[in-house]
Computed example of a mutant assay.
Amino acid sequence: MKSRALTTIGAAAAALALALTGCASDAGDAGGATGDKLSAVMYSSNNETVIGVVTDAAAAHDPAVKVEAVTGSSGPLLERIASESGAPAADVFYSAPAATFEAFADYVEPYLSPEAAAIPEELIDPDHRWTAANAHVVAFMVNTNQIDGGKAPKSWAELTKPEWKGKVIAPNPEQSTTGFTALYGAYKVLGKEDFEKLVANLELTESTSNVYPAVAQGEYAVSIGYESNIYPYIAGEQAGIEMVYPEDGTFVEHDSVLLVKGGPNADGGKALIDVILSKKAQEENLAQSFRRPVRTDIDVASIVDFKALDDLNVVDIHGDDDTQGRADFTEYWKSL
């Protein structure tokens, strides 16, 4: 099973003196450029592997760069940026879907990285407030050992059948971006009547992280989530685990990065965004955390066994009608 690590995380990160902290006052003490050194404070909702890739890449780019990472969920971290706007402590936020940023646009400093030249124009905010850093693709994680006959479902339509009731776990869309992306998309594909049949079959969880081990451990036959979180089980060659892109439509969500307005280390923040969007860092994130890159100059299939987006039936969930569509779906979901 293809899964190629391009470098070893650890040594460079140690040399970089990464600080994982939840303390705003510690973050604020990072300081700006001093002599030949640059600092940057990054608020991040990403896991340790992704953060390690970024800090390793920053160290390789310039060993003098010091990065401090403050970790947490995206919503609270963005709220923190808003609350700190009088005296910002962060330089960079990485990452969340662009739609999430709109409510926090007043706290963003526009910045167009030179690395954005390799990123499709539609993934860059027209006002350069944020830029997509990676793509998430919705897929089913299937444990065929938990299915009579061992045949994985291939479509959303198949999961509406009564025999799947109680066998499928999904994140609650009111609590999870992953859940919202998948189920809003499924609603568009299925229509109201069949979507309600799907919902009747689902077991919902408040935490996205629960859905993958629940299938791996045989508690459920199918989970709905992102390929990047399913693929570790595929790469690990766990018996009976398959990843299925639904034939009647899958959906893509992009996580973006932004520069915080008035951050203490503007130059360091810009340098860090350049690193995050660089080819090297995006290849590393693909190899080590299975985050699909958005750059057009990376051969995804040479690093992991992901299908090309052109080979999938991708249904657009970001069209002109989807801003209202998402709001309507939120109210509809509450009524179920």
Results as ranks from 00 to 15, higher is better:
residue 315 V to L: 11
residue 176 S to Y: 03
residue 204 L to S: 02
residue 57 A to R: 02
residue 189 V to N: 08
residue 172 N to W: 12
residue 235 A to M: 02
residue 26 D to A: 13
residue 190 L to F: 03
residue 151 K to D: 06
residue 241 I to Q: 05
residue 249 G to Q: 06
residue 163 E to Q: 15
residue 2 K to F: 12
residue 96 A to S: 10
residue 37 K to A: 15
residue 83 S to Y: 09
residue 217 Q to C: 06
residue 230 I to P: 02
residue 173 P to Y: 01
residue 276 I to W: 00
residue 64 A to F: 02
residue 204 L to F: 11
residue 142 V to Q: 06
residue 161 K to L: 14
residue 74 S to V: 05
residue 220 Y to R: 02
residue 20 L to S: 14
residue 203 E to S: 14
residue 12 A to N: 11
residue 164 W to A: 05
residue 108 V to R: 00
residue 206 E to R: 10
residue 261 K to Y: 02
residue 99 A to P: 01
residue 27 A to R: 05
residue 56 D to S: 15
residue 154 K to D: 14
residue 233 Y to G: 04
residue 208 T to H: 10
residue 97 P to W: 09
residue 58 A to L: 07
residue 102 E to F: 08
residue 170 A to R: 11
residue 291 R to Y: 14
residue 125 D to C: 08
residue 273 I to F: 04
residue 71 T to Q: 11
residue 76 P to N: 02
residue 8 T to C: 11
residue 179 G to R: 04
residue 212 Y to R: 06
residue 78 L to E: 14
residue 235 A to I: 05
residue 284 E to Y: 11
residue 75 G to F: 10
residue 181 T to Y: 01
residue 65 V to K: 12
residue 66 K to I: 07
residue 117 A to I: 00
residue 155 S to H: 05
residue 227 E to A: 09
residue 299 D to T: 04
residue 77 L to M: 10
residue 336 L to F: 03
residue 115 E to Y: 09
residue 141 M to H: 11
residue 142 V to R: 01
residue 22 G to F: 09
residue 196 E to A: 13
residue 316 D to V: 01
residue 112 L to Y: 06
residue 320 D to Q: 10
residue 270 K to N: 04
residue 317 I to P: 00
residue 19 A to V: 12
residue 60 A to H: 11
residue 44 S to Y: 08
residue 214 A to Q: 06
residue 268 G to S: 00
residue 252 V to Q: 14
residue 173 P to M: 02
residue 5 A to D: 13
residue 85 S to C: 11
residue 219 E to V: 01
residue 152 A to R: 05
residue 279 K to R: 13
residue 100 T to I: 12
residue 181 T to C: 02
residue 298 I to L: 05
residue 332 Y to K: 07
residue 140 F to H: 07
residue 85 S to G: 06
residue 197 K to M: 03
residue 272 L to H: 00
residue 286 L to W: 04
residue 225 G to T: 05
residue 213 P to K: 08
residue 52 G to T: 03
residue 141 M to T: 00
residue 26 D to C: 15
residue 42 M to V: 15
residue 247 E to L: 11
residue 51 I to M: 09
residue 199 V to L: 10
residue 129 R to L: 15
residue 179 G to C: 02
residue 323 T to L: 11
residue 228 S to M: 14
residue 250 T to L: 07
residue 254 H to C: 15
residue 82 A to W: 03
residue 35 G to V: 02
residue 301 A to Y: 01
residue 38 L to W: 09
residue 133 A to D: 07
residue 260 V to N: 07
residue 68 E to M: 13
residue 254 H to F: 15
residue 305 D to Q: 10
residue 126 P to F: 07
residue 50 V to T: 15
residue 243 M to Q: 01
residue 5 A to Q: 12
residue 251 F to A: 11
residue 8 T to W: 10
residue 268 G to M: 05
residue 177 T to G: 14
residue 95 S to A: 14
residue 208 T to I: 04
residue 207 S to H: 08
residue 181 T to P: 03
residue 169 I to R: 01
residue 298 I to R: 08
